Deep mutational scan, measured.
Amino acid sequence: EETGVRVELAEEDDGEKIAIKLWLRIEDIKKLKGKYKDNEAIEFSFDLERDVPEDVAQEMVESGYVCEGDHKTMAKAIKDRVSLIKRK
């Protein structure tokens, strides 16, 4: 499903790190509610043992990086990427 958002690794995952750096990349602004630039990327750290995707997305909303209306879309994108990383 195309959401307009993609999360990718910002650094090589060696399988050892607990906290990883990720990029939340805006790919299609028409599919989102907030005002973003095409190909805008937000770099953030995610602790694989402690962080919760919904909470991280909420922090982005509170910091003004993400529109409240896009919270669920961002949280799902983060959750999907993190579950792929954890499965390795």
Rank of each mutant, 00 (worst) to 15 (best):
K17G: 12
R50D: 07
L32E: 07
E43V: 05
H71A: 14
I78G: 02
E16F: 07
E27K: 13
A10N: 08
H71L: 14
K37L: 05
S45L: 14
K79R: 14
D13A: 09
C67R: 07
D47I: 01
K30A: 12
R6H: 11
P53H: 01
Y65L: 15
M60Q: 00
L32R: 08
K21F: 02
H71D: 04
K17Y: 01
S45Y: 14
I78A: 03
E68D: 09
A41V: 15
G4H: 03
Y65M: 14
C67Q: 06
K72L: 12
A77E: 04
I20E: 02
G15H: 08
L48G: 03
I85M: 13
A10K: 08
V5N: 09
G34E: 00
V82K: 00
M60A: 02
K86L: 01
V66R: 00
D13N: 09
E59V: 11
E40A: 13
V82A: 01
E40Q: 15
K30S: 14
K31C: 08
I20S: 08
E49W: 06
V82I: 13
V7P: 04
L84F: 10
L24Y: 06
K21I: 02
T3N: 11
L48Y: 02
E40S: 12
D28C: 07
D38N: 13
E40N: 10
D51M: 03
W23R: 15
V52K: 14
L9A: 05
R87N: 11
S45W: 15
L9S: 06
A19Y: 12
G69L: 14
L32I: 04
V66I: 14
K76I: 03
E43P: 14
D70Q: 07
L48R: 02
S63Q: 13
F46P: 01
G4C: 04
F46N: 02
G4N: 07
V7H: 02
E68W: 06
E1V: 05
I29L: 12
Y36W: 02
C67F: 12
D28E: 04
T73E: 08
E54N: 06
G34P: 01
F46R: 02
E54V: 03
D28F: 01
V5P: 08
D70V: 02
R87E: 08
L22F: 10
I20G: 08
L24Q: 09
G15F: 05
N39K: 14
L24K: 13
A10G: 10
D70Y: 05
T73L: 11
V56C: 04
E27Q: 13
K21Q: 06
V7C: 13
K21T: 03
E54M: 04
G64N: 02
E8T: 13
S45D: 14
I18T: 15
G15R: 06
E62M: 10
G64Q: 03
C67G: 09
L84A: 13
D14L: 08
E11C: 05
R25F: 12
E54K: 00
A57V: 15
A75Q: 00
F44P: 00
G15S: 09
Y65K: 15
K30W: 03
L84M: 12
Q58M: 13
I85E: 05
L24C: 07
D28G: 07
E68M: 08
L84R: 14
F46L: 02
I26N: 13
K79T: 09
E27N: 14
V56H: 00
G4T: 06
K72Q: 14
V56M: 05
K86V: 02
V7D: 00
V61T: 03
K31N: 10
I42T: 06
T73R: 10
G34Q: 05
K31F: 06
L22P: 09
I42K: 03
G64R: 02
V7N: 04
E68P: 13
M74P: 04
D13L: 07
D38V: 13
R87F: 05
D13H: 10
L32N: 07
K35F: 08
R25C: 10
F46C: 01
K37P: 09
K37R: 12
D51C: 01
R6V: 04
K35V: 11
